[in-house]
Design a protein around this nucleic acid. Sequence first.
RNA 1: GCGCCCGUAGCUCAGCUGGAUAGAGUGCCACCCUCCGAAGGUGGAAGUCGCACGUUCGAAUCGUGUCGGGCGCGCCA
Length: 577
Amino acid sequence: MHLAYALRVDHLAIHSAMSHSAISGYLDNRSAVAALFQAAVFDAFPALRDDSPQFVVAVEQPKNPDHGHFAVNSALHLTKRLGKKPREIAESIVAALKADNGLLASRPEIAGPGFINVRLSRHAETQVIHAIRALGDEFGKSHVGNDAPLMVEFVSANPTGPLHVGHGRGAAIGDTLARLLDSQGYKVTREFYYNDAGAQINNLAASVTARLKERAGVACEFPEDGYRGDYIREIAELYAAQHPEDLLGNQTDQVRGFAVAALRHEQDLDLKAFDVQFDNYYLESSIYTDGLVEKTVAQLVANGHTYEEGGALWLRTTTFGDDKDRVMRKSDGTYTYFVPDIAYHVTKFQRGFGRAITELGADHHGSLMRVKAGLQAMGLGIPPGYPDYVLHQMITVMRGGEEVKISKRAGSYVTLRDLIDEVGRDATRYFFLMRKSDSQLTFDIDLAKSRSEDNPVYYVQYAHARICRVLEQWGGDVTSLSDADLSRLESSYESTLLRSIADFPETLAIAARELSPHLIANYLSDIAAKMHTYYNAERFLLDDVGLTHARLALIVAVRQVIRNGLRVLGVSAPERM
RNA sequence: GCGCCCGUAGCUCAGCUGGAUAGAGUGCCACCCUCCGAAGGUGGAAGUCGCACGUUCGAAUCGUGUCGGGCGCGCCA
């Protein structure tokens, strides 16, 4: 066993916060270096042991390769506390490093204002290959979530039309967040909230009725805010075929129910094509039928956060940070959507989800503060930040260098299904995920369709397929590579790749903490680039069997990491392309 | 007017808990095909990190202000 493992036992208590791969017993390089230096700092300056808060060593990865594999800046941080010059402190820390730690290639250098630059021994670098082989699909996972129940709510489209590209981005982000948090040990539930009550649904029914009358040749005016997409005509046709007794759509409840069911079915098919599955569908209508609206209002009134004005009932959300108070019950006696929204989020908490993530289009961000304020006003002990929100910005779709105009009112918008049919599920998901969710996204259809390395998805998948192809040519049994002599991995390409694949668990941990799926896409793109560079620079199938096996053992590990990463994104890892 | 997001290379975008000479892809320029895939490879030029002030040993990163763009601001959802 490598000494890094022993270090972990010594210092895990101090560094539990940075132990990223708890499942494995494998300690990532950064944490191993941190543990080594933490001990050295305390040995060099024993008084720091008793400080509160205790000094924690930070380890960073320098951009400049001349600065080593990792850099420790503790000497700079301790300047003030110790009243010494940073370079002196650095000298003391380095002098206190445990010899024979097995982790470092050489005595660390002190550079610049007082950075300590460290290089890993090649032996330490190669340990990750064993860890990846042992863990397989589990490599990268962690238990930090402690099986805590967590809900990710996403898509939550009104059943008033097919899913469009914006819903697609939400679906990709929400589903990946769910996969990501699952990988970190949370007990994740995916939920879709259906706004199947209220004015929009009536509007939908009215639109269908209008089309029914139209096809029957009965004069009528189309609702001003009606839905004009062709799918309304299709629903009218279906309705007419199944309900010949009501060709004019006069049975409003029946028309409404039919239209909602038809659109839900369509949306389900869209999501299935996107490989997104929900554990639960929560119907807004059930909030009314279960009496939760009245209950919520009664609670808010009892808590003294409401007042009547102009015949309406208001919630004083300004008490909780909102910029204006909000109407709960309109003067006509009906409720605004705001009340069921609060009631819905209360159910999340009461159903045991100590953490909830709500994924929404950024155009709904106005409702965030209101809901959070409403939850606080309920006085149920819900944590102040509840729930977490992840918002995604708008998408611009480009084809042939031109923007494809999206207009829901005109009924001419790019549906999610269109996109999946045209560019494929993998590319659609990856493109939605490769940018930070709160920046706007340009979706280049031509690029997404192209089968070349210019295409970011193709580039990553190709790295995976390429490894499969090399192994296929080799023709041996991959399990036999566990005996490979990894000390044969001497080139800088190999060092770079080894350290990159070792970063995978930490990348997942950060992406989960930041709720940022794009970090995974960036990471995979980086690994793929390094793999392609390696492939172009070196050969794998050589007369030298020892070197061949060592290199194959490395790329098998790379393949596993790419596969595990793509799985989190919901993108396939093809063996050939 | 108020709130949220964004402003980094010609273009599309990264930049982790503040760190050393700010990165990638694409485009541009120059070289390179006896090769497990030339639909490729190697190298190069290219940025006042919108602007100003502040905090700090150190700011693209944190704070304030300001300019520009997007979105939201209804007793609609």
